[in-house]
Every structure is written in structure tokens, then in C-alpha cells.
Design a protein around this nucleic acid. Structure first.
Lengths: 196, 196
DNA sequence: AGAAAGAGTGGTCGATCACTCACACCTATC
DNA sequence: GATAGGTGTGAGTGATCGACCACTCTTTCT
């Protein structure tokens, strides 16, 4: 896989060049925010390029096509979520599975509070899974995520399952804007759910 | 609202005319299947028209625009799901909330087994909620659905919440094709989940 | 200094998009 | 049997889509 790390940055003239790998990293970060709004099908490559501050034609030099770009965004988001969950596990005092899961859930709640785009990308990724390559990326992402949660927490199957069910509930609630609605049905769906 | 009921059907010549209301009903039924594949953004009005066996221009006589068509599909799917849940409630023997919820869950599992398109439309509707009119339709749909489940079962808030969390888990699992994958992560996510 | 390689863009391609309009056909009513 | 209104379509509209190509400019290598 690629590194996306900044290895070099020229700066002699007013124009500023960066390596393609570094550019890819920047593009992925902004592409997640752009794709978050209207997803794989509803977002044009021109919008992504504009969001990243590069030309649309250069986007096609960094990524072979739109689908590969979206898959790279999925994997970037997936990696970022696993990193954040990992940090919360490192901080939690108890090694009790239920406590670890609670810490992870709390960290996820914080994460989606200031990075709403991440969970929206996940939602759109689920929907774009009718495209074979994207489905494969999405399945791989959930495979890694489930295995990570299971091994990091040591929790039983049904606790891990409930963890994800709760997560999906949060994802749906946020993406349909339920947090901004105060009504009986939102109070029911969000009862006891941490959100910041 | 409209009736979508067949009120008249001319048949004198080889060509067969129907009323616009009846046509709308047929179109909605097939449109759900077409939208299920690639959602609101990824599905063209030409595809919907072709699926319904009418011209694309006539689709625009039946519905003012693409967004109104998609909203109508959402409401049609929503109504259909509530009807099916209602039938299962009528059949269940016990009036115990937990038993009613279990019957509803079982009925939903059967429903999505032979109408996969329904839950995929729901998934896509969640994602298309960045469009204000669609978000309003989606929120209204969940409002009715939650209130219906609550009143029909008489269950407590957290049981209703778990019912929907489980439902969302099923929706995600089906739409990413997890049922076709036999692996530890799918066994964990689907443990104890009824699917036919 | 000069060549090779990489970063980055403007312009454009054919295809497809949502949407419109003029018009043909059918059928009920007077 | 004319007429009015609903059913339905073919042929388009301008705009935008993903993708490609020729090209410039910068940096590095020799």
C-alpha cells in the first residue's frame, strides 16, 4: 500500500510543488468531506478536485478513476476510525470487556461529533456496495473493524454485535438529522445514546 | 394523499390505457426495485421509466420531478412495511410487548428476505437525506414507524430502540452482502439474527 | 548546461443527465 | 360526429458527467 506521507516539498518559486503521495493524502482528507454530502454517485470528480484545490485532470493522475478514489477514501476513513478506537483502548483503565466496549463507544461518539463526514462516508459506502469493487472494500473494512473491536475488547459475540448495532443506529440518526429534531420518536431512538 | 387504486382500464384496441393514478401505483412498485440498486443519485429517470415500461417523458407527467418521485417511493415503501408489521401483530397470540416485538422482527426478517429492494431503498433514503425535501420525508417515515411500533407493541423505550438498532444492523448486513460471506466477522454480526 | 522525470493545468471528448414540448391516440359526453 | 380532455410518445434542450490528452513548468540527475 501507499504511505501518503510527506517526503518532500519544493518551494523555490511562488508555486509550491509536493510529491504525489503527499497530494494523495491531502486529497483523501478533503474528499471524505466532499463525498459525505451526496455520496459516490451524487458527487462529481470536479467537486472533489475543487475541494482539494487541484484541477480535475490532476485528480485523474493521482487516482486511476472515480471508483478507486472512493475506495481509497473508504480505507482512509476506516483506518482513521480504528486508530481513534485504539487510542481510547490505550487510555481505559479496566481490562473488563464491557468497560473497553463502553470506552470505544464513547470515543466513537466523540469522533462523529466533530467529524460528521466520517460516518456519512460510511453510510454512502454501504449504499454504493452494489458496485463490486466498492462492496469488496466495504466488506474488508467491516471485517477489520469487527475483528479489531473483538480482539481489543475481548468481548463476547453478542456484546460486539450490540456494539455495532448501536453504532449503526447512531449513524442513521445523525445522517437523517434526528439530533436536530426534538420529538417522541427521536427521544426513543436516542435514549441513553451519548452524543456531544 | 393519492389512492393509487385502479379505477378504470380501457381496452378496446390493442393498446391498453389506464388512469394516471393506477399508473402511478405501478410505477412506484417498480421504481422501488430500480432505485434499490444505486439509489437516488445513481439512478436515472430513464432507468425508472424503462423499468416501469413507460416513456421517460410520461414519467414526468406522472410526477413533477425526480425528487418527488423518490419521495413518493419512500412513502410507498414506508406504508408497505407498516402494513406488513401490522399483519404480524394481528396474528400474534400474546399481548406481551416483548412477544409482539419478536413477532414484528420475525415478520421484518421475512419481508426483507423476498423484498430486498425495500431495505435498500431505506438505506438510500438515509443517504439522500442531505436533500431537504427527502430528509423531511425520511424523518416523517421514521416518526410514523417508531410511533407505530411503540403503540402496537406497548414496549418500553429501550426495547423499541433495540428493535430499531437490530433492524438497522440487518439493513446494513444485507446491503453490503454480508449474508453471502461466511467469515468470523459475519458470524459475529449475524449471530442470532433471523434471516430466511 | 542539458536531459529526464515529475507536478500540475486547460481544453475537450462522447455519453448521459433531468427535463420540456409538440403532437398522436383513445374515449367519454352531448 | 364533433369536441374536449386524458393517455402516451419521439425528439429534442442545455448542462454536466467521467475520462483523456497535449502541454507547461519545476525539480532532480548527470
Amino acid at each position: 500500500m501507499c504511505e501518503w506521507s510527506i517526503t518532500h516539498m519544493g518551494t523555490t518559486n511562488g508555486r509550491r510543488l509536493s510529491t504525489a503521495d503527499a497530494r494523495r493524502g491531502e486529497v483523501l482528507a478533503t474528499a471524505a468531506k466532499v463525498f459525505a454530502a451526496r455520496g459516490y454517485y451524487g458527487t462529481s470528480t470536479t467537486e472533489v478536485a475543487k475541494g482539494a484545490g487541484i484541477s480535475q485532470s490532476y485528480l485523474y493522475r493521482l487516482f486511476p478513476d472515480k471508483q478507486a478514489l472512493f475506495v481509497a477514501v473508504i480505507e482512509d476513513v476506516s483506518r482513521l476510525i480504528r486508530e481513534r478506537l485504539g487510542e481510547s483502548v490505550a487510555k481505559v483503565g479496566s481490562a473488563e470487556p464491557v468497560d473497553v466496549l463502553r470506552a470505544m463507544g464513547d470515543e466513537y461518539a466523540h469522533l462523529i461529533a466533530d467529524r460528521e463526514d466520517l460516518l456519512k462516508v460510511l453510510m454512502h459506502a454501504n449504499c454504493a456496495a452494489s458496485e463490486p469493487e466498492i462492496r469488496q472494500a466495504v466488506q474488508g473494512m467491516y471485517a477489520r473493524l469487527v475483528e479489531y473491536v473483538r480482539s481489543a475488547s475481548g468481548a463476547r459475540d453478542d456484546d460486539v454485535q450490540e456494539f455495532f448495532a448501536r453504532g449503526f443506529l447512531c449513524n442513521v440518526a445523525v445522517s437523517i438529522g434526528a439530533l436536530e429534531v426534538d420529538a417522541p420518536w427521536t427521544r426513543t431512538l436516542l435514549a441513553g445514546i451519548r452524543h456531544y
